[in-house]
Structure formats: structure tokens, C-alpha cells
């Protein structure tokens, strides 16, 4: 038992427990909170696996960005404070049945995974530096990519680098940015009932704060 194992067990326990708690709870903001704990645990597992840059990206983009976005979504779409989600028993049954089946299949597959026969060797190999990741994204692999390519110079490993996916992801992000802004744009109230309070507030007095004030007032009245 060495400290690698200790930390793995602690982090895995945090991750798994909070993931299960996120499913069980019916309170949506608590769900987001458990998601944060779970994602933080996953970031810790990344650090433990030597993927420092990945762990920091996970913390920054996922925990700092995505989950804040989700919390925003909860607050902007809440009609009463502390929204609860009703899950009917049949849905729970369906969910649990699927969960049981899936875990049976996946754990079975996991157990069949060829495991090393002898005790695993100790490693002192350093983690990947962020510079390596950066150059790989820019189209140049500086690590020995695969045994087949050893002995060749750097130019030969160009084929394995990730310049094109990197560009695709950037363009994709831009597209999503514009698309999301277009979808969630404020619209003029048309007077129909279904337009909702939020949009009315956006249209009349303009600005996010007015909409928030209207939302908060509605929440306060509801409680």
C-alpha cells in the first residue's frame, strides 16, 4: 500500500459518492453541487495520473465554466425557489434497470480486461509537459510517438499530430458561441401567454439586471 493507492482510493471514493448522490437527490442545485464535487474528484484523478494540464483544464473549463453555466440555467429557468424534480417510480424503475444492465455489461468487460500478471512495476517517468501538448496541437510531435516511428526525425511524426482537429474544435466553438447567443437572444414580447415572464422583462426594461429583478421578485412572491 503506497500513497498512490491511498490518494486514488480517496479521490475515487469522492468521485463515485458524489456521482451517485447527484443522481439520487431531487434538488437541482444540490445536483449541480454534487456535480462540482464529482468533477473536482475527476480532476484529482487526472493529477494522480500525471495529466497535470488536463486536470487544470478540467478545473477551469468544467468546474469554473460549465457548472457555473448550469447554475445560471437553473436560476434563469426557476419558477419557484429550490426547484425539485419529481421522478415517478416507473422512471426510477426504468433507470435502475438500465443502470443494473449497463453495469453488469461494463463490469464484465472490465473484468475481462487483461491484467498484468506480476506485480506492476514502479515508474519514475515524468509527466507530460504542457509544451508537448501545445506543440502536438500545433502539428508537431516531440515525444517518441510510437515504436514504429522511432529512428525517424521529427518531420516524420507530423501525421500523428492534431492541427486539423484543433482548428475544427476552434471553429466549432465559435459556431456554438454564435448559435447559443442567437438562440438565447432577447425577443420582443408578442403578447402571447407563452412568452413567459423572463422575456417580457427583457423586452420592456432591457438589460439582464431588470430580468433578474423580475425573476427574483417572482421567486420572492412564490415563497
Amino acid at each position: 500500500m503506497d500513497w498512490n493507492w491511498v490518494f486514488f482510493i480517496i479521490l475515487a471514493a469522492i468521485t463515485v459518492t458524489s456521482a451517485v448522490a447527484a443522481v439520487i437527490t431531487s434538488h437541482i442545485v444540490r445536483m449541480a453541487f454534487y456535480l462540482v464535487v464529482c468533477l473536482g474528484g475527476v480532476a484529482g484523478l487526472f493529477f494522480l495520473a500525471g495529466a497535470y494540464f488536463l486536470g487544470a483544464v478540467q478545473l477551469m473549463v468544467y468546474v469554473g465554466g460549465t457548472v457555473v453555466l448550469i447554475a445560471f440555467g437553473v436560476m434563469l429557468t426557476a419558477r419557484t425557489p429550490f426547484v425539485r424534480m419529481q421522478t415517478t417510480p416507473d422512471q426510477w424503475l426504468l433507470g435502475l434497470a438500465t443502470a443494473a444492465t449497463l453495469s453488469a455489461v461494463l463490469v464484465q468487460a472490465n473484468l475481462r480486461f487483461p491484467r498484468p500478471a506480476d506485480p506492476p512495476p514502479a515508474v519514475t517517468e515524468p509527466a507530460v509537459s504542457p509544451g508537448g501538448l501545445g506543440t502536438a496541437l500545433l502539428g508537431l510531435r516531440i515525444d517518441a510517438a510510437s515504436p514504429a516511428e522511432e529512428g525517424t526525425d521529427g518531420a516524420a511524426s507530423l501525421g500523428l499530430a492534431y492541427l486539423l482537429p484543433f482548428e475544427l474544435v476552434s471553429v466549432h466553438l465559435l459556431t456554438v458561441l454564435i448559435g447559443a447567443a442567437y438562440l438565447a437572444r432577447p425577443r420582443r414580447p408578442t403578447g402571447t401567454e407563452s412568452e413567459g415572464r423572463r422575456e417580457a422583462a427583457w423586452g420592456q426594461s432591457g438589460g439582464p439586471d431588470a430580468a433578474l429583478a423580475a425573476l427574483a421578485a417572482a421567486q420572492d412572491g412564490g415563497s
Partner: peptide
Amino acid sequence: LTQIPLAAYLLVGVVLFVTGI
């Protein structure tokens, strides 16, 4: 460091996947 078997990591992945579904 002692290496942790891949199966342990994959098990965490399994749990997350199943809870997500």
C-alpha cells in the same frame, strides 16, 4: 510509484457512465 491497474480507473469510469445514463 506503484502503478495503479487500469481496471481501477475504468471502474470509476463505469460508475460515472452508469450514473450519468
